[in-house]
Design a protein around this nucleic acid. Structure first.
Length: 265
DNA sequence: ATGACCTGACCATCAGGA
Protein backbone atom coordinates (compact mmCIF):
# COMPACT_ATOMS: atom_id res chain seq x y z
CA UNK A 1 0.00 0.00 0.00
CA UNK A 2 1.07 3.54 -0.62
CA UNK A 3 2.08 5.51 2.40
CA UNK A 4 -0.39 8.14 3.45
CA UNK A 5 1.28 11.36 2.51
CA UNK A 6 -0.62 14.60 2.64
CA UNK A 7 -0.95 16.07 -0.85
CA UNK A 8 -1.18 19.61 0.39
CA UNK A 9 0.11 21.45 3.38
CA UNK A 10 -1.32 24.59 4.83
CA UNK A 11 0.79 27.70 5.01
CA UNK A 12 -0.49 30.63 7.04
CA UNK A 13 1.24 33.95 6.51
CA UNK A 14 0.64 37.15 8.44
CA UNK A 15 2.12 40.56 7.70
CA UNK A 16 1.98 43.47 10.14
CA UNK A 17 3.43 46.94 10.43
CA UNK A 18 3.68 47.09 14.22
CA UNK A 19 5.05 50.65 14.55
CA UNK A 20 7.68 49.60 17.15
CA UNK A 21 8.08 45.99 18.28
CA UNK A 22 8.79 47.08 21.87
CA UNK A 23 5.62 49.12 22.08
CA UNK A 24 3.60 46.31 20.53
CA UNK A 25 4.96 43.34 22.50
CA UNK A 26 1.62 42.36 24.11
CA UNK A 27 -0.34 42.54 20.86
CA UNK A 28 2.25 40.66 18.84
CA UNK A 29 2.27 37.94 21.50
CA UNK A 30 -1.51 37.79 21.35
CA UNK A 31 -1.44 37.52 17.57
CA UNK A 32 1.09 34.69 17.62
CA UNK A 33 -0.79 32.74 20.28
CA UNK A 34 -4.16 33.14 18.58
CA UNK A 35 -3.26 32.76 14.90
CA UNK A 36 -0.10 30.64 15.07
CA UNK A 37 1.15 31.77 11.65
CA UNK A 38 3.76 29.63 9.91
CA UNK A 39 5.36 32.82 8.61
CA UNK A 40 5.19 36.21 10.31
CA UNK A 41 6.42 39.27 8.43
CA UNK A 42 6.91 42.40 10.54
CA UNK A 43 7.63 45.97 9.49
CA UNK A 44 8.73 49.04 11.48
CA UNK A 45 10.54 47.21 14.26
CA UNK A 46 12.14 50.54 15.23
CA UNK A 47 14.94 48.86 17.17
CA UNK A 48 18.59 48.25 16.43
CA UNK A 49 19.01 45.36 18.88
CA UNK A 50 18.93 42.25 16.70
CA UNK A 51 19.30 39.88 19.64
CA UNK A 52 16.19 41.37 21.19
CA UNK A 53 14.25 40.78 17.97
CA UNK A 54 15.40 37.17 17.53
CA UNK A 55 14.85 36.38 21.22
CA UNK A 56 11.37 37.86 21.14
CA UNK A 57 10.15 35.35 18.56
CA UNK A 58 12.24 32.36 19.66
CA UNK A 59 9.93 31.10 22.45
CA UNK A 60 7.16 30.52 19.90
CA UNK A 61 9.12 27.93 17.92
CA UNK A 62 10.21 30.58 15.42
CA UNK A 63 13.50 31.32 13.83
CA UNK A 64 13.85 34.91 12.66
CA UNK A 65 15.79 36.89 10.11
CA UNK A 66 15.85 40.64 10.55
CA UNK A 67 17.26 43.84 9.14
CA UNK A 68 17.61 46.44 11.86
CA UNK A 69 18.09 50.17 12.19
CA UNK A 70 18.11 52.56 15.14
CA UNK A 71 14.77 54.30 15.81
CA UNK A 72 13.33 53.82 12.35
CA UNK A 73 12.25 51.14 9.88
CA UNK A 74 13.45 47.56 10.41
CA UNK A 75 11.86 44.38 8.99
CA UNK A 76 11.81 40.75 10.08
CA UNK A 77 10.49 37.40 8.95
CA UNK A 78 9.87 34.69 11.54
CA UNK A 79 9.22 31.14 10.40
CA UNK A 80 8.40 27.83 12.05
CA UNK A 81 11.62 26.02 12.84
CA UNK A 82 10.85 22.93 10.73
CA UNK A 83 10.59 24.94 7.51
CA UNK A 84 13.66 24.60 5.34
CA UNK A 85 14.74 28.07 4.34
CA UNK A 86 17.49 30.12 2.85
CA UNK A 87 18.02 33.78 3.71
CA UNK A 88 18.39 35.54 0.36
CA UNK A 89 18.31 39.03 1.81
CA UNK A 90 20.52 41.24 -0.33
CA UNK A 91 21.80 44.62 0.56
CA UNK A 92 20.78 46.90 -2.28
CA UNK A 93 17.34 47.67 -0.92
CA UNK A 94 18.80 48.13 2.57
CA UNK A 95 21.75 50.33 1.72
CA UNK A 96 20.34 53.43 3.38
CA UNK A 97 17.56 52.02 5.53
CA UNK A 98 16.41 48.57 6.72
CA UNK A 99 13.37 47.86 4.55
CA UNK A 100 13.55 44.45 2.79
CA UNK A 101 13.95 40.75 3.67
CA UNK A 102 13.91 37.81 1.28
CA UNK A 103 13.24 34.31 2.60
CA UNK A 104 13.28 31.29 0.30
CA UNK A 105 11.21 28.25 1.24
CA UNK A 106 13.52 25.73 -0.35
CA UNK A 107 11.23 22.70 -0.40
CA UNK A 108 8.26 24.65 -1.74
CA UNK A 109 10.16 26.80 -4.22
CA UNK A 110 8.57 29.96 -2.86
CA UNK A 111 10.28 33.30 -2.24
CA UNK A 112 8.75 35.52 0.42
CA UNK A 113 9.68 39.18 0.14
CA UNK A 114 8.85 41.38 3.13
CA UNK A 115 8.93 45.14 2.63
CA UNK A 116 8.55 48.46 4.32
CA UNK A 117 8.29 50.89 1.42
CA UNK A 118 9.49 54.46 2.02
CA UNK A 119 6.71 56.89 2.88
CA UNK A 120 7.91 59.54 0.44
CA UNK A 121 6.39 62.69 1.94
CA UNK A 122 6.60 65.54 1.26
CA UNK A 123 6.46 65.09 -2.50
CA UNK A 124 8.59 68.09 -3.43
CA UNK A 125 11.65 66.65 -1.64
CA UNK A 126 14.25 63.97 -2.19
CA UNK A 127 12.17 61.72 0.06
CA UNK A 128 9.73 61.26 -2.79
CA UNK A 129 12.39 60.51 -5.39
CA UNK A 130 13.94 58.04 -2.94
CA UNK A 131 10.59 56.26 -2.64
CA UNK A 132 10.32 55.91 -6.43
CA UNK A 133 13.94 54.76 -6.76
CA UNK A 134 13.45 52.21 -4.00
CA UNK A 135 10.34 50.85 -5.73
CA UNK A 136 12.33 50.48 -8.95
CA UNK A 137 15.02 48.54 -7.07
CA UNK A 138 12.31 46.26 -5.70
CA UNK A 139 10.98 45.80 -9.24
CA UNK A 140 14.41 44.58 -10.33
CA UNK A 141 14.73 42.28 -7.34
CA UNK A 142 11.33 40.71 -8.00
CA UNK A 143 12.04 40.34 -11.69
CA UNK A 144 15.10 38.25 -10.82
CA UNK A 145 13.34 36.16 -8.19
CA UNK A 146 10.40 35.49 -10.51
CA UNK A 147 12.69 33.60 -12.87
CA UNK A 148 13.16 30.76 -10.42
CA UNK A 149 10.54 31.00 -7.70
CA UNK A 150 6.90 31.45 -7.01
CA UNK A 151 6.75 34.69 -5.08
CA UNK A 152 4.80 36.26 -2.25
CA UNK A 153 5.43 39.99 -1.92
CA UNK A 154 4.07 41.47 1.27
CA UNK A 155 4.41 44.30 3.75
CA UNK A 156 3.53 47.97 4.10
CA UNK A 157 3.64 49.31 0.55
CA UNK A 158 2.81 52.91 1.40
CA UNK A 159 0.86 53.02 -1.86
CA UNK A 160 -2.83 53.81 -2.42
CA UNK A 161 -3.18 52.10 -5.82
CA UNK A 162 -6.63 53.40 -6.77
CA UNK A 163 -8.96 56.14 -5.57
CA UNK A 164 -11.33 53.65 -3.94
CA UNK A 165 -8.49 52.29 -1.80
CA UNK A 166 -9.07 55.33 0.42
CA UNK A 167 -12.22 56.40 2.22
CA UNK A 168 -11.67 59.93 0.97
CA UNK A 169 -9.05 60.21 -1.74
CA UNK A 170 -9.28 64.02 -1.75
CA UNK A 171 -7.25 64.06 1.45
CA UNK A 172 -4.37 62.38 -0.39
CA UNK A 173 -4.19 64.64 -3.43
CA UNK A 174 -0.73 65.88 -2.45
CA UNK A 175 0.31 62.76 -0.58
CA UNK A 176 3.18 60.58 -1.80
CA UNK A 177 1.05 57.45 -1.32
CA UNK A 178 -1.39 58.37 -4.10
CA UNK A 179 0.72 60.21 -6.69
CA UNK A 180 0.55 59.02 -10.32
CA UNK A 181 4.29 58.26 -10.23
CA UNK A 182 3.83 56.11 -7.11
CA UNK A 183 0.93 54.23 -8.67
CA UNK A 184 2.93 53.70 -11.84
CA UNK A 185 5.69 51.98 -9.84
CA UNK A 186 3.07 49.83 -8.09
CA UNK A 187 1.55 48.77 -11.40
CA UNK A 188 5.02 47.95 -12.68
CA UNK A 189 5.20 45.38 -9.87
CA UNK A 190 1.79 43.96 -10.82
CA UNK A 191 2.90 43.78 -14.44
CA UNK A 192 5.53 41.25 -13.43
CA UNK A 193 2.46 38.99 -13.39
CA UNK A 194 1.68 39.34 -9.71
CA UNK A 195 -1.84 39.35 -8.32
CA UNK A 196 -3.20 41.43 -5.46
CA UNK A 197 -5.15 38.85 -3.46
CA UNK A 198 -7.44 41.44 -1.86
CA UNK A 199 -8.25 43.07 -5.21
CA UNK A 200 -11.82 41.84 -5.43
CA UNK A 201 -12.72 42.19 -1.76
CA UNK A 202 -15.15 44.91 -0.68
CA UNK A 203 -12.92 47.96 -0.27
CA UNK A 204 -14.33 49.02 3.06
CA UNK A 205 -13.37 45.70 4.60
CA UNK A 206 -9.90 45.87 3.11
CA UNK A 207 -8.52 49.05 4.61
CA UNK A 208 -5.38 48.22 6.55
CA UNK A 209 -4.35 51.58 8.02
CA UNK A 210 -6.31 53.90 10.27
CA UNK A 211 -4.71 57.16 11.38
CA UNK A 212 -4.11 57.60 15.13
CA UNK A 213 -5.34 61.18 14.82
CA UNK A 214 -8.70 60.43 13.24
CA UNK A 215 -9.64 56.87 14.13
CA UNK A 216 -11.99 57.69 16.97
CA UNK A 217 -13.89 60.14 14.76
CA UNK A 218 -14.40 57.76 11.86
CA UNK A 219 -13.68 54.09 12.39
CA UNK A 220 -14.32 53.25 8.72
CA UNK A 221 -12.02 55.96 7.42
CA UNK A 222 -8.94 54.04 6.42
CA UNK A 223 -6.68 53.33 3.47
CA UNK A 224 -5.53 50.09 1.87
CA UNK A 225 -1.73 50.11 1.81
CA UNK A 226 -0.67 46.65 3.08
CA UNK A 227 -0.66 43.85 0.51
CA UNK A 228 -0.05 40.30 -0.55
CA UNK A 229 1.01 40.15 -4.20
CA UNK A 230 1.42 36.57 -5.42
CA UNK A 231 2.30 34.60 -8.52
CA UNK A 232 -0.73 33.26 -10.44
CA UNK A 233 0.03 29.68 -9.37
CA UNK A 234 -0.08 30.69 -5.72
CA UNK A 235 -3.23 32.76 -6.25
CA UNK A 236 -4.98 29.52 -7.14
CA UNK A 237 -3.89 28.09 -3.77
CA UNK A 238 -5.27 30.89 -1.61
CA UNK A 239 -7.80 29.52 0.87
CA UNK A 240 -8.45 32.53 3.02
CA UNK A 241 -7.54 36.20 3.26
CA UNK A 242 -8.42 38.62 6.02
CA UNK A 243 -7.63 42.01 7.48
CA UNK A 244 -7.44 41.42 11.24
CA UNK A 245 -9.09 44.71 12.12
CA UNK A 246 -9.78 43.70 15.73
CA UNK A 247 -6.12 44.47 16.52
CA UNK A 248 -6.83 48.13 15.72
CA UNK A 249 -9.35 48.24 18.58
CA UNK A 250 -7.15 46.72 21.27
CA UNK A 251 -5.26 48.62 23.94
CA UNK A 252 -2.27 50.57 22.63
CA UNK A 253 -2.62 49.47 18.98
CA UNK A 254 -0.50 49.94 15.89
CA UNK A 255 -2.05 52.21 13.28
CA UNK A 256 -1.84 49.28 10.84
CA UNK A 257 -3.88 46.07 10.98
CA UNK A 258 -2.31 42.65 10.47
CA UNK A 259 -3.22 40.97 7.18
CA UNK A 260 -3.56 37.19 6.89
CA UNK A 261 -3.36 34.72 4.00
CA UNK A 262 -3.83 30.94 4.13
CA UNK A 263 -2.44 28.84 1.28
CA UNK A 264 -2.80 25.15 0.50
CA UNK A 265 0.41 24.23 -1.23
C1' DA B 1 -13.60 74.54 8.51
C1' DT B 2 -9.96 72.78 11.41
C1' DG B 3 -7.69 69.59 14.09
C1' DA B 4 -7.19 65.70 16.27
C1' DC B 5 -1.75 60.84 17.83
C1' DC B 6 2.01 57.92 18.56
C1' DT B 7 7.06 56.45 18.92
C1' DG B 8 12.01 56.90 19.93
C1' DA B 9 15.61 59.66 21.46
C1' DC B 10 16.32 61.85 25.39
C1' DC B 11 14.65 65.52 28.92
C1' DA B 12 11.81 69.38 25.90
C1' DT B 13 11.16 69.03 21.94
C1' DC B 14 11.66 67.22 17.50
C1' DA B 15 11.76 63.95 13.35
C1' DG B 16 9.01 60.82 11.19
C1' DG B 17 5.03 58.60 10.12
C1' DA B 18 0.83 58.44 6.26
Amino acid sequence: MDAVVPLVSKLKIISWNVNSLRAREPLVQKLIQKEKPDILCIQELKIDDQKYVLDFFNPYHYTTISQNQKSYNGVSISYQKELLIKDLTISELNTLQARNNVLLLEKEGIAIINNYFPNGNPIDTEKFSYKLEWMDLLYNQLKQLKKNYEVIVTGDFNVIPADDDAHDIKKYRKDALAQPETRKEFYKLLNLDLLDVFENEPKKNSYTFFDYKTYKFGKEEGIRIDFFLVSPFLKSKVMKIKVLKEYRDMERPSDHCPILMDLNI
